[in-house]
Amino acid sequence: MATQTAVHETQTPVFLAKEEPHAPSSTMLGFWIYLMSDCLIFAVLFATHGVLGRNYAAGPGPQQLFDLPLVAINTSMLLFSSITYGFAMLAMEKDKKQATLVWLGITGLFGAAFVGLELYEFSHMIMEGAGPQRSAFLSSFFTLVGTHGTHVTVGIIWLITLMVQVGKYGLGAENKRRLMCLSLFWHFLDVIWIGVFSFVYLMGVLG
């Protein structure tokens, strides 16, 4: 069969594309779909906290535990890290390697300050006997806020990895793509934090 068609063809059929087909890259769409699935994880944790958030088991409630000025500082840390990451992306577009690295470093410091403050808050609560095992409210609180904190920690590790990559190999197409993915991830975590400070902290204190 194959020989027959080969005989009838005047030209030898070409089965290999000589050039890469110039299809638009689907990395950003794929990463966006990952973020959306991550969003579902947080939705389930928010729903759990919504259901269990008032079950104090005669333990301490949000009014006694939450330190709103600390949460406000924490929120501003994450917000500052968002804008500095934006500046890193702007520097990246202008192919300014040094400026990109500096802004990424500042972003990482803000992120580390956020995680540090959150760990301080957690340790303070656990020291007061309000650990995750105290009540259903505290279990769901630590799971939701802890999952967000873990994401930020992973984001910082990713950020440091990319800083090393950019420092070593420069701002090539691959590194730019990776930085754009981390940009989406980082801003997405800030979006989740809006939900956390509004629904967990502020509305928890409201009672």
């Binding site: 890259s25 950003m28 917000l79 804008i83 577009e93 730019k176 400070f197 502020l202």
Partner: peptide, 28 residues
């Protein structure tokens, strides 16, 4: 190119940042 598409501008980032600060400060 999907990679370089959809980025922001300095003005866009600053607008978003200022709006976010206001929208964070009010609920607190």
């Amino acid at each position: 190119h999907g990679e370089t598409e959809g980025h922001g501008s300095f003005k866009g980032y600053m607008t978003g940042f200022i709006l976010s600060v206001i929208l964070t400060a009010i609920p607190f």
